[in-house]
Computed example of a mutant assay.
Amino acid sequence: MTQIHDVALEAGGHGFRIRVYPATQPNGAMLVWLHGGAFMFGTLEMPEADQVARRLSADGTTVISVDYTLAPLDALESLTPPSEDAGFPSPEQLRAEAEAAGPRARFPVASLQVVEAFDWAVANAERLGARPEQVALGGASAGANLSAGAAMRLRDRRTTMPAVLALVYPSPHDGILPPNDELARLLQDVPPEHIFTPEVRSAINRNYLPDGIDPHGYAFPGGHDLTGLPPVLIVNAELDSLRASAEAFAAELARASVDVHLVRQRGAMHGYLNEIGHPAAEHTLALLADAVAGAPRREANS
């Protein structure tokens, strides 16, 4: 059986790597997966990357975890980010990651790397026990945004599309959308350190896309033409100020005649996939496995 291994790739003028988690008993499905971390943080070793990949590969889906080039840390001084419990590293971890991450770059480097990783997955699917037409794309938080933006690029390129797009607690719009009354009431009981404020979100986004110019939606797909995207699974954390964006995105997908399945994880806060054994994480892993394994086959240009 092929072991977990890394592969070096290049895109956007930067080298990066992917980590291949071959399925123990392949079911024909493959998932290209991206961790979150405000575009600035995160590693292949964090639970949101490694545990997701290990669990899904043990369930039959080969996973390609992408170690995309991270954005610079220029925004750190202006941020008071959510706590470590919400998926953000501690100050000590931040320093270690900053030293280990190597060269950093802003949009569009990571976005181009996701497309390259997806192309590699399609080209190598058969030798890893998967079908090229059953390669899915997905991620969590910033990784979900990167996945959705890459799907927009692939659609516009008019070649092979992901079989399904799986987005966990995404924020597809450039900014915090106002909460509805229900979400506003729920957020009143959430500790402030667990909430993304408009100021924090703006600092994160301008660090990634400084000029805010995104005519094609490759950085933030929300509010753009979503016609022609593959079926989409969106899994939200109920107690998350970013939830309003994900719910609005689901409505936009439906209006664009894209099949969308929207799930809310009750009582969960942003970043819960980093909490191994969390009930919401367990349910989300099951949803991901079912969505990817049951994805309809999509031919190129379909």
Rank of each mutant, 00 (worst) to 15 (best):
T160A: 14
Y169K: 02
L186E: 12
A166T: 13
D174K: 03
P172E: 09
Y218W: 08
P162R: 10
L187N: 05
I204Y: 00
P210Y: 06
D181R: 12
F196M: 15
I204W: 00
Y169A: 01
A203W: 00
N180D: 15
R185V: 13
E199G: 01
E199A: 14
T159F: 07
P198R: 11
R201H: 03
N180T: 12
R153E: 05
N205K: 01
A203E: 08
Q188M: 11
P179Q: 12
Q188E: 14
S171V: 12
L183I: 13
R201P: 02
H216V: 04
P170H: 07
R185C: 00
R185Q: 13
A163C: 09
L186S: 11
N207Q: 09
N205V: 14
M152P: 01
Y208C: 05
A150S: 12
P170K: 13
F220N: 09
P179K: 08
A151W: 07
L186I: 14
V200N: 09
P178A: 15
G212A: 04
P162A: 10
R201Q: 14
I176R: 04
P210N: 08
A203H: 03
A166R: 00
H173P: 00
M161C: 07
R155M: 05
P215W: 04
V168C: 02
L187S: 03
I176D: 04
E199D: 13
